[in-house]
């Protein structure tokens, strides 16, 4: 092999390695049927949850869930329904965090994924919604 040939081969190897490295670092896998189904389910439920966030009845917890924050903001007759809504949402959220970890072949990432979501739900919440700060106290955004 000539000197130039060797250099060219070396550069090619380098280029392929860089491409592979970039691909490995790129994104988490979230395009699975299970994740899409959870996303749809949560999106459908959001129509019912949105007024509850706005009234302060339901808030975003620091651990990536939702919780009934102020039961008095909900008429007694609807309280059971709101509790069921909160429970169903938390079930979907837990499944979502688990599924993302699983889809990426790293079940042990589940709690890290939950923590990331917890922060991003709060960051993206609308003004007036309640969330839990690091010490667990409710704060109005």
């Amino acid at each position: 092999m000539t000197r130039l040939g060797a250099l060219r081969a070396a550069l090619l190897v380098l280029l392929l390695a860089v491409a592979g490295f970039a691909a490995a670092q790129a994104n988490l896998e979230i395009n699975t049927p299970a994740i899409a189904a959870l996303q749809r389910s949560m999106q459908d439920r959001h129509g019912q949850l949105q007024p509850l966030y706005a009234s302060g009845a339901v808030g975003l917890t620091r651990d990536g869930n939702v919780a009934l924050r102020d039961a008095n903001a909900v008429p007694l007759a609807q309280r059971a329904q709101v509790n069921a809504l909160v429970a169903a949402e938390n079930q979907d959220r837990a499944a979502l965090y688990r599924e993302i970890a699983r889809a990426n072949g790293k079940p042990e990432w589940e709690s890290d994924i939950r923590a990331t979501f917890a922060q991003r739900w709060i960051d993206k919440a609308q003004p007036g919604w309640y969330y839990q700060n690091a010490s667990g106290a409710w704060v109005k955004k």
Binding site: A26, N27, L28, I100, D112, T116, R120
Partner: peptide, 21 residues
């Protein structure tokens, strides 16, 4: 190590979808 930046991007995409942002 957990890929925090990639996880944040994934969370943003899902939250935007769920909350229709």
């Amino acid at each position: 190590y957990f890929p925090a930046a990639a996880a944040e991007r994934a969370a943003d995409r899902i939250i935007d979808e769920v909350w229709q942002l």
